[in-house]
């Protein structure tokens, strides 16, 4: 079954919202520890492809950003410090200490990072939630927005063919959601 067919299959049984929140249920039993080295590799791949990515962060590069994909069973804690680049998946219930929180569905966050959606518009429509150090968030947003090409593709590339197929399926689900 192709990724696009998988997307069609999911939507033939579930509403958009149910489909959107399906990953939260399906992935919750999965332990996070195997994810950690993978995430670190993904971040490294993005930074290597875009070496100037964190210049726009200035003094905010040591801040702890909580990236909260609300339809996933975990949050990501990002410290975009080139000297100590860190990304870690954490259970939401652990409520990790952070300076700023950016929340939205996984695909909205992905599409914003990829330059397909406008962060201000998502904020106006309440699809994006920002809390904590607003200046740090704005700097991170501007840094990510200055990237060209697809960060999602870079990340999926780390996972090889399964990553590409997953991304295609996720994008298919996103199309249904629009």
């Amino acid at each position: 079954m192709s990724a696009a067919m998988a997307g069609n299959f999911v939507h033939s049984f579930l509403s958009s919202r149910q489909a959107q929140y399906l990953p939260k249920k399906l992935l919750s039993p999965i332990p996070l520890s195997p994810l950690q080295p993978l995430l670190q590799r993904m971040l490294k791949a993005v930074v290597e492809a875009n070496p100037g990515i964190f210049n726009r962060l200035g003094m905010h590069r040591t801040k702890r950003f909580l990236i909260d994909p609300v339809n996933m069973p975990f949050v990501l804690l990002l410290v975009p410090d080139p000297e100590n680049l860190t990304i870690k998946a954490v259970r939401r219930s652990e409520n990790p200490s952070h300076d700023a929180r950016i929340a939205g569905t996984f695909l909205i966050l992905l599409d914003m990072i990829d330059g397909n959606l406008d962060g201000d518009a998502l904020f106006f429509s309440r699809d994006l939630i920002i809390e904590g150090d607003t200046e740090a968030v704005v700097c991170l947003r501007n840094a990510m927005d200055d990237l060209e090409g697809s960060v999602a593709d870079d990340i999926a590339g780390v996972l090889g063919k399964p990553g590409e197929l997953t991304l295609t399926a996720l994008r298919k689900i996103r199309l249904y959601d629009e």
Binding site: N116, L117, D118, G119, D120
Partner: peptide, 10 residues
């Protein structure tokens, strides 16, 4: 100028 490249493009 404070908006994203997605806004600019559209």
């Amino acid at each position: 100028r404070q908006r994203s490249r997605a806004y600019v493009k559209s």
